[in-house]
């Protein structure tokens, strides 16, 4: 998936029992998981983005594509337990059991962030910000991309290098 490409529609099961996918509003897709330290380090920053931009009609979808057979902490049940233990999340948490959606996007790492406009066109891809160790970064690259999108500008940068653990592909 390259910047400017249109993402085909998809729906995946969410921990709340519904099926969710990109809609008619801008959508942030974050490939993430339960057990990767990079994903965990950025998690609160990404949820903060979901809270802040949810008020501006931006949908945030967290998608866990990891092989749960070899990594049981990434099972759908474990995902549900995690969200429940937190008392709910501002972002939907979806399970990509077949990994088809992760392959469609070309996801490399957890996290790997993709921003789609209201027409489903990819406008940003990469890391949330420049430093997983620094919460003060506040997902600045992602917020910048969303601000640009909502103000009718091109995100700059439109692409950064995703940083994290590799997606755990099925054998």
């Amino acid at each position: 998936m390259n910047i400017g490409d249109t993402v085909p529609p998809f729906d995946l099961p969410a921990t709340d029992g519904t099926d969710k996918g990109p809609g008619a509003t801008p959508t942030v897709v974050v490939f993430t998981c339960n057990h990767c330290p990079y994903a965990l380090a950025w998690h609160d920053r990404l949820l903060s983005v979901a809270r802040d931009y949810g008020q501006r009609a931006v949908q945030v979808l967290f998608i866990n594509p990891n092989d749960a057979e070899r990594y049981p902490r990434d099972s759908f049940e474990a995902m549900k337990e995690r969200v429940q233990a937190d008392g709910g999340w501002a972002a939907a948490y979806l399970r990509d059991e077949s990994q088809e959606v992760a392959r469609l996007f070309g996801a490399k790492t957890t996290p790997d962030v993709f921003v789609l406009d209201a027409e489903g066109v990819l406008r940003y891809r990469g890391a949330p910000d420049s430093d997983y160790e620094d919460p003060a970064q506040e997902a600045a690259w992602l917020r910048g991309a969303l601000n640009a999108l909502l103000e009718g500008r091109e995100p700059d940068p439109a692409e950064t290098e995703p940083v994290g653990c590799s997606v755990k592909w099925l054998p």
């Binding site: 057990h35 330290p37 380090a41 070899r70 902490r73 997983y132 160790e133």
Partner: peptide, 17 residues
């Protein structure tokens, strides 16, 4: 034991690889 990413906690509580 397993082939997974390891989660560490820094002394200030932050999660780290």
């Amino acid at each position: 034991a397993g082939l997974t990413c390891r989660i560490y906690h820094l002394r200030d509580g932050r999660v780290s690889p």
